[in-house]
Amino acid sequence: MSELSELYQEVILEHNKNPRNFREIESPDRTADGNNPLCGDALRVYVKLDGDTVTDVAFKGSGCAISKASASMMTQFVKGKSREEAEVIFDEFHRMVTGELNAEAEENHLGRLKIFAGVLEFPARVKCASLSWHTLHAALQGEGEVTTE
């Protein structure tokens, strides 16, 4: 299970079990719904803004371990960042899981989110890892809904 251990790392399993910021935010400034119709993953991302700063971000919904852990780690990572910084990380994350960015070799801001580079080996699971990020992006852009297929 060598490749598997790269996908289902301890950190991911732990976040799946105890997702952080797995809650609603009362009167959020932005929300968006993310759906993956192929697998039925569905989540809602809530964002609280102070000017340009993401002061709180949380999510609710159902999905697989990869999508849940990714959403959980995203909320931790983005909290306190500016909208612009969040968008940069979204872009880098998206490029990493689609193989356009080599997170080990090229400069980036992904930090411990790099563990999701492992989904590259599992093409069917790339969308699981990126659903929450697309949903956050939609929320920040003021779009209410995003679908990944």
Partner: peptide, 13 residues
Amino acid sequence: GIHPHDIGTILDQ
């Protein structure tokens, strides 16, 4: 407690 997609991926391995 385990999503079917995670089951599917691990079985595939």
